[in-house]
Design a protein around this nucleic acid. Sequence first.
RNA 1: CGGGGCGUAGCGCAGCUUGGUAGCGCGUUUGGUUCGGGACCAAAAGGUCGGAGGUUCAAAUCCUCUCGCCCCGACCA
Length: 605
Amino acid sequence: MVHRWSETLIPTTREAPAEAESPSHVLLLRAGFIRKLGAGIYDFLPLGFRVLRKISEIVRQEMDGAGAHELHLPVLLPIELYKGTKRDQDYGELLFKISDRKDAQYALGPTHEEPITELVGGSVTSYKQLPVNLYQIQTKFRDEARPRSGLLRCREFLMKDAYSFHLNVEGPGGLNETYDRMYAAYTNIFKRCGLDFTAVEAESGPIGGSASHEFMVNAPSGEDTILKCPVSGYAANVEKCEIGQRALGTLTETPTGELTEVHTPGLPGIDEVGKFMKVKPDRMLKSIVFQIAEHGEGSAGISWVVAVVRGNHEVNEGKVKAACGAKKVVLADEKAARAAGFAIGYVSPRTVNTVPGTLLLLDPDVTTGGFWASGGDRADYHVKHFNLRREIGATLDDAARVRIADVRNALEGDPSPRSAGAALVTGRGIEVGHIFKLGTKYSDAMGLSVLDDKQQKRSVIMGCYGIGVSRTLASSVEQNHDANGIIWPAAIAPYHVIITLMKADSQEHRDLARTIAGELAQRGIDVLIDDRDERPGVKFKDADLIGVPIRLTLGEKSLAAGAVEFRLRTADDKGELVPRGEVVNWCVSAIVHGRNARPSDAAQS
RNA sequence: CGGGGCGUAGCGCAGCUUGGUAGCGCGUUUGGUUCGGGACCAAAAGGUCGGAGGUUCAAAUCCUCUCGCCCCGACCA
């Protein structure tokens, strides 16, 4: 492919709009890849769209290679479809809703579990048609509360979503087999896109399901925190990350002094109370009240769950849910909790004795002895010298009412759950891919079942697999840029080579550029010829800004020497002269051997 | 949704406190000089000052309402 700058639209600017802050947002705007039309709504200009297509093509190749088949579902979906799975409620405000002229309600698809399940339900009638794995690359809509960071969090964005359907979880044709293939395909996709990423274990979230992994592009600007064990390779996001064995107290520690009430008016926050009482947050007990939203095995007889962590730690809802055996827990409704006897904001672990139906969950870090401060169980009061054994007594030994469990978010330095003695390290990431084992959530809700070979009716088991295509584009920029602009990995660069004409008005130079471009194109290389009548400085700056991996410069001096100037985007020098006859091979070699390798580098490696 | 901030030319901003009908830089157009890392000189085009209402002889400026956008938080495949 050969394009000429003068014929396309690449509106580069020296300055970015003040509202753009993150690197990808600023650079994509400045380099003329995208343009904002509204909050979380962007135009993709020719350069941006080319990158989108390159990423999409890699995704297609890998998905097709892994046995998935592309289709195309509507964006405009009758709201009834979402009522069936209650996701019009679960998704809530996030679901974009519109109405037609007859005032019928529609949703703009945020994901497509419902329509795909409807489709398969109506067309798959026998277990012999399973398994099947279908995907699309489609514009998605989410009414984000706060779109931000350009393409990283949009209200309209491009996503690849795949759904697989199975009779079994295990064995040939089972969900696990496809899940593993998708995992491998995702790994290939993000590798081929030239991204530095980490696959982490994740909670499946409101979409439901039993197991999932997130693919995170490593970037300091990422919104998500991930934790890794450098020894075992275990990696997970904060919501999911387990913590290894921690030191436990005996629950028989001696009190540090008389339990003393302290008047702390209008100070509900840990930090403020700590300052007021002159107690460090890590010596305070933070007691958070949850209520069971949906009972499960093990949560019978429980109405309230009080999770206790150190003041400088954060309670993890997923872990609370697991520890109490419920299917779903939510932060307690403040009114209801007060009515039940909780002094919200001033709760202490003693409530296990005072509020019927309360289960107390103690994080290991609060079971050790020493000085503790806690809520005073009445408004505006805290207590000092809190001692679990003295304040709670024999109830501590009743496993039905008090459990010691990991209920907090993991932190840097916590013991690894997979390798004794190793400590977790943290990093930031941008979620670009997510794969789930959905199970039968949607098939049950929408009545998708088939008869098996024993004529038994079986719910179809599903998996779903998403990739944020436009987000992948942005995260590549987050990860690959410098002070001068974007640095595209060759595989997803809008063009592989930019030919910069020093004398755009010279017919001879234009002809040569076109000839070289033609030769490159024959080798499968995409070329942009900068034939604008601009000063050299402008062209060099723009070439760096848009981030094309290789720049060939055609100027008087080099041409007189029968050479072309070859420069990698990552080079810090002015480039080097390459004989005219070799320049195409140089380019091919650099593209093939890695995104920024010169032929000489490749020979050495 | 809570807190903070911003809407003035394609982009970046000043003007608003103390009302008198809009200005600077970049970019754009024309002419000239330049020509290897965002040139210089000269001239020019381009703005219902987000919108509506109000106060006033007079509103970008003051008042009320409204819409849009950004940041932090809450939330979030």
